[in-house]
Design a protein around this nucleic acid. Structure first.
Lengths: 204, 204
DNA sequence: GCATTAATAGTACGGTCGTACTATTATTTG
DNA sequence: CAAATAATAGTACGACCGTACTATTAATGC
């Protein structure tokens, strides 16, 4: 599951397997449901054996969030970097983002779960989440700026506004998929994204 | 807190007070954190006394969700009905929606909490949530249709797409407010909404 | 291959969970 | 105001929670 080819020690291997199960649980049932009991059962480990890998529940939650974000990066952002900077890369980033949950065989988006649970609850999890989201936001803004630089977007394009709206499109598509089982969710998201793009192309 | 002027029995009064505390807890800490213990403490009741009002935890969660949605209706949708149907009403609905959490003195949106927790977890809570969201979705679609009927929106406007995008704008504004403490969140939401409106006004 | 260290299991603890059941008040009604 | 009923409190239960601590097994390095 890890991309790096470096040989893993037994402990690291187990830890990776645990985090894989943890991300799956967090995606569906949330990070609060990430108990040592249920996770140990899912990872085929004793509760105490599992506990030894993480000093506390909070550490486990943060490690799981980190892993989720790592996968998002792996499936969504990093591949987009192979596409030439500008509008094409921005579109690729969006498309990858729409599909990364499916591609990593998750039933739901763990990052969306984390946002719902911790966006307004002070603590280490919120701090970690804030940092991750800040980074994602910055990456989007930078990609938008590049698209301005290539001349494909109008100079007065507000990259922060773009990121704001993009997050909204992704969020509502997740909700439409999960709650309404809307098979057109991705299609609708693309329609919305297209309009956002168009608006940035023409100056007002 | 209840809008109806009907005199409440002691039990109904207590129940209303409980639900008020419950909505506050659910908004911040989620519906899973809605335990009889913590809620009893907040509502100044014994755990068993509280339990008597709801047959089970699930019933408590559903009652809390119902109350949250009732307040959304009270602060957001119903007042908009006083505005003449068409674009003006649609804009009012949006503006009320943006502000209803603040106006009902909540620290976060309990409905967003519910969406994050239950949009992908089968069970009675998901069913109740699905029904509520379906209704909200229908209300928006009807408001859009009316705006088409008044001629303010192009005839080919996709009301489902409109509702889809509107949910996204609201969702991302919540996130921006809570996670990033972005004071411009509402402003950004209005910018996005304006663009959505504009797109519906001109046929392509 | 044996000593050393890492990884996992076992067990125990106080705390809170949801939910019964009974007892005691407070409210409503005749 | 008394009788009936509703509302609340008390208590108890097994289950699971997070986290210590110790014991055992497996992996690793000389």
């Amino acid at each position: 599951m890890n991309t790096s080819a470096a040989k893993l020690s037994k402990g690291e291997e187990t830890r990776a397997a645990i985090l894989d199960a943890a991300v799956n649980i967090a995606a569906v049932d949330g990070f609060d449901a990430l108990t040592f009991g249920t996770l140990a059962e899912k990872a085929r480990l004793s509760k105490s054996g599992l506990f030894a890998h993480f000093g506390s529940k909070t550490d486990l939650q943060i490690a799981t969030l980190d892993e989720a974000v790592r996968r998002y990066q792996e499936y969504s952002f990093l591949p987009a970097l192979k596409v030439p900077r500008g509008l094409k890369r921005l579109i690729t980033l969006f498309e990858n983002w729409l599909q990364w949950v499916e591609r990593s065989n998750l039933k739901a988006c763990p990052i969306m779960s984390a946002l719902g649970e911790f966006d307004d609850r002070p603590g280490p999890m919120r701090d970690a989440l804030h940092q991750h989201m800040q980074r994602m936001n910055d990456e989007i803004k930078r990609s938008v700026q590049m698209t301005i630089d290539t001349g494909e977007f109008a100079a007065e394009t507000d990259s922060e506004q773009f990121a704001f709206e993009l997050f909204g499109i992704i969020a509502t598509s997740c909700r439409a998929r999960n709650l309404f089982h809307d098979k057109l969710a991705n299609q609708r998201a693309r329609t919305a994204f297209d309009r956002l793009i168009k608006a940035c192309q023409q100056h007002n």
